[in-house]
Write a protein that binds this DNA or RNA. Structure first.
Length: 100
DNA sequence: TATTTGACCAAGA
DNA sequence: ATCTTGGCCAAAT
């Protein structure tokens, strides 16, 4: 039996490069409204590189938080082709990945 | 078992 | 536009 966190990490792994998703979408994909628990899963993410937690942002298109510093998160996103300006995603709707 | 704590969200004032 | 409030859920304490 997996914990909720493990399910979250499993989903995050399928986020493609150059795309981002939101805590809300992740929770919805799990059939739950545990946005906050998803955030906790990232903060306590023990699978550093395997799980791309930097591709998860707030539902309003803002970067949100990052344990190693928001600045770093932004840099990684830009490196993958996601434009970020003033702490917000540029063309948010275009790069947003939903777990259809 | 009960309370607290978040990398959250949406609606109101 | 900013601030407050209530809701939401899993894990840790």
């Amino acid at each position: 039996m997996q914990t909720f966190y493990e399910r979250v990490w499993g989903l995050m792994k399928r986020i493609p490069c150059g795309r981002v998703t939101t805590y809300k979408e992740l929770a919805k994909a799990l059939g739950s409204k545990a946005y906050r628990a998803v955030g906790n899963a990232c903060h306590n993410n023990p699978h550093a590189p395997v799980v791309p937690c930097h591709r998860v942002v707030n539902s309003n298109g803002c970067i949100g938080g990052f344990a190693s510093g928001t600045k770093k998160k932004i840099r990684m996103l830009r490196q993958e082709g996601v434009q970020v300006q003033n702490g917000k995603i540029v063309g948010f709707e275009k790069v947003l990945f939903k777990f259809r």
